[in-house]
Simulated scan of single mutants.
Amino acid sequence: MSDQAKNERAPEDIEATEAKAAGERAEGSVGDDYEALVRLLKENEELKDKTLRAAADMENLRRRAARDVQDARAYAIANFARDMLSVSDNLRRGLDAVSDEARAAGGQALNSLIEGVEITERAMLSALERHGVKKLAPEGEKFDPNFHQAMFEVPNPDVPDQTVVQVVQPGYSIGERVLRPAMVGVSKGGPKAAAEKPAEPGPVNRQAEKDA
C-alpha cells in the first residue's frame, strides 16, 4: 500500500487499527502478569511448606531434647540404685538369718542391733523411692514377663493359670524401666484368665435406618 493510500485512510480505520494493536498489547501484558502471579503463588506455597516443615522439625527436636533431659534425670541413678538394692538384699539376708529363737535368747544387745539394721534397710528403700525407685511385689497378680521372672511353677487348680503365687525376691522399677524383675513362682493348671468381654453395641438409631 502506497503512502498516499495510507494517508487517504479514514480516521475511523486508523482508530480501529490502533485500538486493535492496543488490545493485543494489553492481552499480552495480562498474560504475562497472570503467569507471573501463578509463579509467585507457587513459590509462596513452596516457601510456606518449607517453613512448616522447618517448624515441625524444630518442635520434634525440642520434644526429643526435653525427653532426653527427662530420661537423664529419671534414670541417672539407675546404676547406683541397682547397687544399693544389692546392699539392701544383703541386709535382708542378714536379718532373715537370725532365727526367732536366737532373737529371744540374744538379749537386748542383739535385738538393738537387729532393730538398727531394719531401720537402715527401711531408710535406704525410702530414699530410693523418693528418687523414683518403686518396689514390685506382685503376689496375686497375673504373671508379666516384662516385670517378673518365673523361677518355678506351683500346680494349683483353684488359682487362675499364670498367676503369681509367691514372691521369692521383690523386684524394683525406676520410671517405666525395670531395675530388677521380681523373682516369682507362678500357678499352673488352674482355669484360664477370663477373656475380655466384647463391647456391647450402642443404641440403634431407628430414624437413621428409616432414612436409609
Rank of each mutant, 00 (worst) to 15 (best):
L128M: 14
E118W: 00
I119Q: 14
G94Y: 11
G106Q: 05
E139Y: 02
L136C: 07
L136H: 04
N90D: 10
D96F: 06
A97Q: 10
V133L: 11
A104W: 02
T120V: 04
G116F: 04
P145E: 11
L91I: 04
E101L: 08
G94E: 08
A97P: 00
A97R: 10
E121K: 09
P138D: 09
K142Q: 13
R122W: 01
V98D: 04
G116K: 13
K134Q: 14
G140W: 09
S126F: 01
K134G: 05
G107T: 10
A109R: 14
A104G: 12
E118T: 11
L110V: 05
M124T: 08
L136F: 08
V98M: 10
A127M: 14
T120Q: 12
N90L: 08
A105W: 00
R103S: 14
E121D: 11
M124C: 08
A109F: 11
N90A: 11
S99Q: 08
R103N: 11
A102S: 13
L125V: 01
L113I: 08
P138I: 04
V98T: 11
A102D: 13
L113K: 13
L91S: 03
L128N: 02
R93H: 10
H131L: 07
Q108A: 12
D100R: 12
R92W: 06
S126W: 02
L95I: 12
K135I: 13
E115Q: 14
A97H: 09
H131I: 00
A127P: 04
G140L: 07
N111Y: 09
D144P: 03
L136K: 03
R92P: 01
G140Y: 10
V117K: 02
I114N: 04
L136S: 09
D100W: 05
D144C: 04
L110I: 06
D144F: 03
G106M: 06
K142G: 00
V133D: 09
A123L: 04
E139C: 02
D96L: 10
R130Y: 09
E115I: 01
R103G: 12
E118H: 04
N90R: 11
V117P: 00
E101M: 07
L136V: 15
G106E: 03
A97G: 11
E101N: 09
D89R: 13
L136W: 05
S126I: 00
N111R: 15
G106H: 04
L128T: 01
G106W: 02
G116E: 12
N90I: 00
R93N: 13
E141V: 02
G140S: 12
S112E: 15
D100A: 15
N90T: 05
D100I: 12
P138W: 03
G132E: 06
I119N: 14
P145W: 05
S112W: 01
A102N: 07
M124P: 00
A109N: 12
K134D: 14
P145C: 01
K135V: 13
E141W: 04
D96G: 10
G106S: 07
L110A: 09
S99D: 08
R92D: 14
R130A: 09
L113T: 12
D100H: 10
L113P: 00
I114R: 07
L136P: 03
G132S: 06
G106Y: 02
A127F: 12
E129Q: 08
L95V: 10
I119C: 02
E141D: 15
D89N: 13
E101P: 00
E129D: 11
